[in-house]
Amino acid sequence: MNTIPSLLLAYLDPGSGSFILQLLVATLFGAAVIVKAYWAKIVAFVRRDKKAEPADPSNNDPLNK
C-alpha cells in the first residue's frame, strides 16, 4: 500500500498561489511559534524566581521544597 503516492489522496487542488503563499508566510508564523515558546519559558522562569523569594509552605513547586 505504501506504493500509492500521497498525491492520490490530495483530491483538493491546493492552488498554485495558495501553495506559494503558504511557503512564504508559514516560516514567519513558525518563527513566531518559537519566539512565543521562548517567551513563555522566560516568563515562567521569572515567575518561578519571584515565587521562590517568599517561602510559601503550601507551594507544591518542587523547587521550593
Partner: peptide, 11 residues
C-alpha cells in the same frame, strides 16, 4: 518547496 512542522504549526 518545503514547509517544516514548526512552520505548519505557526500557520
Amino acid at each position: 518547496r518545503k514547509m517544516g512542522r514548526t512552520a505548519f504549526i505557526g500557520l
